[in-house]
């Protein structure tokens, strides 16, 4: 048996070696390089390989960083809240009301927009919300407004709308999967014991669905915070988020140690917040076992 396990392990490791090697070379090594760079000094057009914490000190004391990081966190939190709250009823409908044979068709319909060019979808919101855009020109030709509305583009709200639209399907799937796993007899038991429909939902369905809600929140929050296209197009480049700041430090100003320190700090903040979020929901996540 022991030799069987060993050969199992050897075969498994042999098989996993190519994808693992690729991930190490193209993902882990570059991430470690960024980490190393963040402790180096910036020379003009070169990087001086001397250990320093100066980059981190500069990042933490930079008021622009504070502002942009807070904005990114705020936008991502708002987008997460909006997508999860809007997605939950859809996932609930899919799991509880849709004929099982039609479920994959519904899921497919929901995922299609997610897979169609992200850039074009973001740009379309600009077309819709713009000064001469679809909404303004539509309202004008209907005679509802005289002057184009200017408050609908190039601000944080329009960025939240665009991102919430882009990540919507991402939120539905984990919640749907969690709801599917719920043993339906538990709900019947709740009703039999005299709970109302609403109370059964509140005390049985929702706690059991929480792992899915937590997963949905993380899966929306993390990529949203690193979004580059939406601030560039919908924010008109004037309301940068952290990705735009990293890009401009790294490339426009060619300060790689500083850009690396920014990227590492942002990743740490996101990782920390995600861990806190998971810890806060630990009570719900334990339910599964």
């Amino acid at each position: 048996m022991a030799s069987g396990n060993r050969s199992q392990a050897a075969q498994g490791l042999g098989l996993i070696a190519p994808p693992l090697g690729y991930a190490v070379l193209v993902l882990a090594a570059p991430l470690l390089t960024i980490l190393a760079y963040s402790f180096f000094k910036d020379g003009y057009l070169t990087v001086i390989r001397e250990f320093t914490l100066e980059n981190y000190r500069a990042v933490w004391s930079d008021p622009i960083f504070h502002k942009i990081m807070l904005r990114s966190l705020g936008v991502a939190a708002l987008v997460t809240l909006v997508t999860v709250v809007l997605a939950f009823p859809v996932a609930y409908f899919l799991s509880f009301a849709v004929d099982p044979r039609k479920k994959s068709m519904w899921l497919f319909l929901i995922t299609i927009p997610f897979w169609t060019s992200y850039l074009i979808r973001v740009f379309l919101w600009k077309v819709i919300l713009g000064y001469n855009g679809v909404i303004n020109s539509g309202l004008k030709s209907l005679g509802i407004i005289e002057q184009p509305l200017t408050f609908i583009l190039y601000n944080v709200n329009s960025m939240v709308l665009t991102l919430a639209h882009a990540y919507a399907p991402f939120a539905i799937l984990p919640i749907f999967i969690a709801l599917e796993k719920i043993d339906r007899s538990l709900l019947e038991a709740g009703r039999d014991l005299g709970e109302s429909r609403a109370m059964t939902f509140w005390r049985v369905t929702l706690p059991l669905a929480m792992p899915g809600v937590v997963a949905a929140a993380l899966i929306v929050f993390i990529p949203t915070i690193g979004d580059y296209v939406t601030p560039a197009l919908i924010g008109g480049g004037k309301i940068p988020m952290i990705a735009n700041m990293i890009q401009s430090q790294m490339l426009d100003q060619d300060n790689r140690p500083m850009g690396s320190a920014l990227a590492v700090t942002a990743m740490l903040i996101v990782a920390l917040l995600s861990l806190v979020f998971v810890a806060l929901n630990r009570r719900f996540l334990k339910v599964r076992q």
Partner: peptide, 17 residues
């Protein structure tokens, strides 16, 4: 990991290397 890592991090780190 690339499923959750923002693409900006993947591309910038790869670019630097």
């Amino acid at each position: 990991l690339p499923l959750v890592l923002p693409e900006i991090i993947v591309s910038i780190s790869l670019l630097v290397v």
